[in-house]
Design a protein around this nucleic acid. Structure first.
Ligand SMILES: [Zn+2]
Ligand SMILES: [Zn+2]
Length: 128
DNA sequence: AAGAACGTTATT
DNA sequence: AATAACGTTCTT
C-alpha cells in the first residue's frame, strides 16, 4: 500500500494518508505535472462545453468547515453566489490558465505542505 | 482594478 | 427542485 505523508497546515500533527485516499479527496493528480493540451483533439475552446473548475480540497481554505458568517460573501449570500472568503480555494483564486501549459498535478499549497515523504524519500516541490 | 450582481453549471 | 458556487458582466 503506497502512502504519502504531509503536514496539515491546520493541525501540527502529522497525517498519513493512503495514496488513493488523498487522490480521491483532491481534484488534482499527483505529482506535479505540466503539459500542453492545446493540440489535443476536441480541445478547441469554442466547441468545448464550459468547464467549471473544482476546489482542490487540500489548501487551508478548502480544509475549513465553517462559514465565517461575517464576510460580504456570507452576509450577501443570496446575491453574491460566492463561497465564504475564508473558504475560497487558493487554486481557484488564481485566474484559470487559458490555453497552453496547464497544471494537472498536486500543488504544494502551503510551505509546510510542500515536503512530501514517499517511500522514506523526502521530496520538496518548487512553488508555494 | 476591485467588488457586487448576475447567469449558469454542478451536485444532491 | 433546492442548494452551492464558478465565471462573466456590470458597477464603482
Ligand atoms: Zn464568510
Ligand atoms: Zn483549495
Amino acid at each position: 500500500m503506497k502512502k504519502i505523508q504531509f503536514l496539515s497546515p491546520l493541525k501540527d500533527t502529522c497525517h498519513y494518508l493512503d495514496y488513493d485516499e488523498i487522490l480521491s479527496k483532491s481534484n488534482v493528480d499527483f505529482p506535479v505535472v505540466m503539459r500542453d493540451d492545446s493540440s489535443d483533439i476536441g480541445s478547441d475552446a469554442s466547441t468545448q462545453p464550459r468547464k467549471k473548475r473544482k476546489r482542490c480540497n487540500l489548501c487551508v481554505p478548502c480544509l475549513r468547515t465553517e462559514n465565517c458568517g461575517t464576510c460580504t460573501h456570507c452576509v450577501n449570500r443570496a446575491t453574491s453566489h460566492q463561497v465564504c472568503k475564508m473558504r475560497k480555494c487558493e487554486a481557484l483564486k488564481k485566474k484559470k490558465k487559458s490555453g497552453g501549459l496547464k497544471q494537472c498535478g498536486l500543488m504544494p499549497l502551503r510551505s509546510n505542505m510542500s515536503e512530501v515523504i514517499q517511500n522514506d524519500v523526502k521530496v520538496t516541490f518548487g512553488i508555494d
